[in-house]
Simulated assay, not measured.
Amino acid sequence: MKTKKVTVIPYDYKWNEEFQKIKLDLEKTLEDSIIAIEHVGSTSVEGLSAKPIIDIDIIIKSYDNFQDVKSRLESLGYYHEGDLGISGREAFGYVEKEELMTHHLYVCPQDSVELKRHITFRDYLRTHKEDRDKYSEIKLYAAKKYPTDIDSYIETKSPYISEIYKKIGL
């Protein structure tokens, strides 16, 4: 069991502004080497409670230009962490970016199954208020019940995520 504080808070409109700041910072260096930068995860869904951590997918054409993107990210202070057991997504960490909100950064090729899952899930929750609100309640409940156990938190919300995946064909 991992002991890690689990904090879930009601949606905050500042999250989109914070994403825009990070995106701007990345775009200056990545420019023409990428297709897009997407705000994914719970903070990208207006009205959804979330852990206050921005999830970002940087979309590249293919792994052919991954090394270029990786070295550009390294010049910004990010370091490559590998796929962390999830194929089609390369994770990047960082040390001390006090001016930016805490975020998770991933680089995904445009044909990545993981990227499709992130975008499809986000877009579904953005347009289905009832499911978004139920998911929000489950997350708040799980964080309250397991405030120091990230694995149990994830386990508690997983069945509802699976239910949504079935609805959207994932």
Rank of each mutant, 00 (worst) to 15 (best):
M1E: 06
V8A: 04
V8D: 03
V8Y: 07
I9Q: 13
Y11T: 11
Y11Q: 04
Y13P: 03
K14G: 11
N16A: 10
F19N: 09
K21F: 02
K23R: 15
K23M: 06
L24K: 14
D25F: 14
E27I: 10
T29E: 11
E31R: 15
I34R: 07
I34T: 07
I35D: 08
E38Q: 10
V40P: 00
V40S: 03
S42C: 12
S44Y: 07
S49Q: 05
S49P: 03
S49N: 01
A50N: 02
K51F: 01
I53T: 11
I53L: 14
I56W: 07
I60W: 11
K61E: 15
S62V: 01
N65I: 05
N65T: 14
F66W: 03
F66I: 02
Q67A: 08
D68C: 07
K70T: 00
K70F: 00
S71E: 13
L73K: 06
E74K: 14
S75K: 14
S75P: 04
H80W: 02
D83H: 13
D83Q: 07
G85W: 08
G85M: 12
I86L: 13
I86R: 14
R89L: 08
A91K: 06
A91H: 11
F92T: 10
G93L: 08
G93P: 02
G93E: 09
Y94A: 10
V95H: 07
E96M: 11
K97P: 02
E98Q: 13
E98T: 12
L100I: 08
M101Y: 09
M101L: 13
L105D: 05
Y106C: 02
D111A: 08
V113P: 00
V113M: 04
E114Q: 15
H118S: 09
I119D: 07
R122E: 07
D123H: 09
D123R: 09
Y124M: 05
K129V: 09
E130R: 05
D133M: 10
D133S: 10
E137H: 07
L140N: 05
A143H: 06
I150W: 02
S152W: 00
S152N: 15
S152P: 00
Y153S: 07
T156S: 14
T156M: 11
S158G: 02
Y160T: 12
I161T: 15
I164P: 14
Y165N: 13
K166M: 03
I168V: 11
